[in-house]
């Protein structure tokens, strides 16, 4: 049963077993505008919670995608390199960035639920 959690920096992580799929939210892609470039980490890289997992660029902005929790990169969505617009079209689906193998599932506790995140976005 997949469960999705959110950060204040607008990353999501969808948990399936001991791995999580990380991407940016629909709100985030809307704020960035047309995504033109995505820089992905190498598979095998260890990232700490809050550390840089990827970079996403629009025409006029560049942002880091931070790891919502600590883990090892087990897969990257290299389709984005040729088709960065997927992040705009389907952020929660085909527009994912990396898959992490979680090192500390307890870190998920600090993240927002879907409902909490939607409330948070309303305050912005």
């Amino acid at each position: 049963m997949a469960e999705t959690r959110y950060t204040k920096d607008h990353e999501y992580i969808r948990i399936e077993g001991d791995t999580g799929t990380v991407g940016i939210t629909d709100y985030a892609q809307g704020q960035l505008g047309d995504v033109v470039f995505v820089e992905l980490p190498t598979v095998g890289k260890a990232v700490a919670k809050g550390g840089e997992a990827a970079v996403v660029e629009s025409v006029k902005a560049a942002s880091e995608v931070y790891a919502p929790v600590s883990g090892e990169v087990v897969a990257v969505n290299s389709d984005l390199e040729a088709a960065p617009g997927t992040v705009n079209e389907d952020p929660a689906g085909k527009g994912w960035f990396v898959k992490l193998k979680l090192t500390d599932a307890a870190e998920l506790e600090g993240l927002m639920s879907e409902a909490q995140y939607q409330d948070y976005v309303k305050t912005l």
Partner: peptide, 14 residues
Amino acid sequence: LTLSTREQHIRRDK
């Protein structure tokens, strides 16, 4: 002008 995200006015200290 393109690929401006490399530049100081967007990327600042990076």
